[in-house]
Amino acid sequence: MNLIIGIILFLSLAVVFLLFRSTEILSVAKKKIATSFEDSNNSFNAISGVVFMFLSFAVIFWYSYDQFENYFLPMASKHAPEVELLFWVTMAVTFTVFIITQVVMFYFGYRYRYKKERKAYFYPENHKLEIVWTVIPAIVLVGLIGWGLVKWNNIMGPPPKDAVVIEIMGYQFAWASRYPGPDNELGDANYKLIDVDNIVGIDFTDSSSLDDFMPREIHIPKGKPVLFKIKARDVIHSVYLPYMRSQMNAVPGMPTQMWFIPTKTTAEMREETGNENFNFEIVCNKICGRAHFSMKHTVIVEEEWEYIKWKNEQKSWIEKNPDYYANFVKNNSTDVAVLND
């Protein structure tokens, strides 16, 4: 194998060198000035440009059409179709401009390739034309911006009051989630209380933290607004849900949030994609160290009744870790006692 690669490498080097020497010697022999404008290669380059362009267009069109289902992900949140509509309108605009400008450019290259007897047209400026192609892009951009900003403000704006609140914390190299429990209120947390067991640093002196629970997988109800309160424990991470078209960085020392309304359950997605192992996953999308590439967390979207059923079955964190809590009470007895009174 190495021998073959070596031989190929050697042969290609030899070809390049021969090409070089022969053209060099040929040009000396022909007494051609090294820079002569009249050059048989001129047409070759002009035509190659056009050929390259058409071949590229053919490949782009074919691939974009043929592989659409591979690169275009199903949409599983309420705002996803709105974002995608703007995406594809932008695509239509830019693709049109792309095709027109590239065609015109390579065509000009071919049409106006050097001919000795022709003289170029001295045409230093045309203010009307310049104003036209300044104003038209400006108008199109205003449209795209305006549309984008309306959607941006909706998506990033305050979440509905009835949103299901879940705390998500990123750490090297996994995600943890915490639900508020029956009292619908997340208890306090403090990074100084973090240890091997209490990975998010729940502060049990706050009574609303007593019923908080931390499941192994995130469950969320379909059709209800879901609010992620996002934290990071060590370095910056990013909560990315590609199917929801949702993303937000997780920053140590600065809580962030994002919300969305899921529109497809995991079961529905399994049917749609034909993949019975399909799962929504939070993937980390901000470089965070060695295992960045495998930092993910399963999210299960289910019907609301399933979600409520699941939620009611969850045991609170202190129920699962009674020893830890007992120890905590012992160490912080005065605080806890006051609160429990």
Partner: peptide
Amino acid sequence: IIAVPSAVKAFNYIATLWRGNIVF
């Protein structure tokens, strides 16, 4: 907004090629 001057530059390059006598 920064796309506007960038677009102007691209268009001006193409306009320069128009009816030129192009040496590749």
